[in-house]
Write a protein that binds this DNA or RNA. Structure first.
Lengths: 106, 106
DNA sequence: TCTCTTCATCGTAATTCGACGATAGCCGAT
DNA sequence: ATCGGCTATCGTCGAATTACGATGAAGAGA
């Protein structure tokens, strides 16, 4: 499983833009679920991971994990890259940095 | 409106404990709503504020804002103190610091 | 005491969320 | 060309969320 050379576009973390309240709310809402929080944590540790390996970490149906990935992707916190038959996900470091910056002002 | 000397217990920010995934998820979920995010921002700026003044900031019913305050309170992000007929809210700096610390590891 | 103000809670309706199984698309290998 | 594995999407359900008005408790002041 996942022995292929996985690469996932790492956006340069220098382009940090200020986020609107709605954007911040969308991101924090996306993180506001134990499974999604754990997914981000896993991706942060492993740097990158394919859907199947991710789904195997939870006692959930594959479709459910895929849905969580979609929420995180829509929020801009992660991004997926199709690699043949699989999809590799990685955290969007720029977005995460922007979120931290926004929360820092609280 | 709100001319009384308002004080709100500020927990010492030194007692920062590590949060569980569920705690972090609960907090981020609480922040995952534009109105609640704005409430925290307002409290962070004004240092303290009574329910009525807070409710006046939004085109929402008083009961709705009160409910949002309850969510934030249950998440531990803010705390209210009854002052006579009013209730004064303030951010829980320790909890917020703990949350930032937890998100920092992402 | 009576009234006014302030706030939280209750009941309710509409919407969204979280989970599942089933399905369809797509790629690689046989 | 067909088969088999990997993902995303769709339809559906029960549960949770968000909003409202109405109600009730409790302090402040006339």
């Amino acid at each position: 499983m996942s022995t292929a050379p996985q690469k996932c576009v790492e956006p340069d973390a220098t382009t940090i833009e200020a986020l609107s309240d709605d954007q911040v709310a969308t991101m924090t809402k996306a993180l506001g679920h134990p499974v999604r929080l754990r997914i981000v944590r896993l991706l942060s540790e492993r740097h990158t991971c394919v859907t199947g390996d991710l789904a195997a970490q939870f006692p959930l149906a594959q479709s459910t994990v895929s849905e969580h990935l979609r929420v995180l992707r829509d929020a801009g916190l992660i991004q997926g890259e199709i690699e043949g038959v699989r999809t590799s996900y990685c955290v969007n470091v720029a977005a995460l940095a922007a979120l931290k910056a926004a929360l820092g002002s609280l």
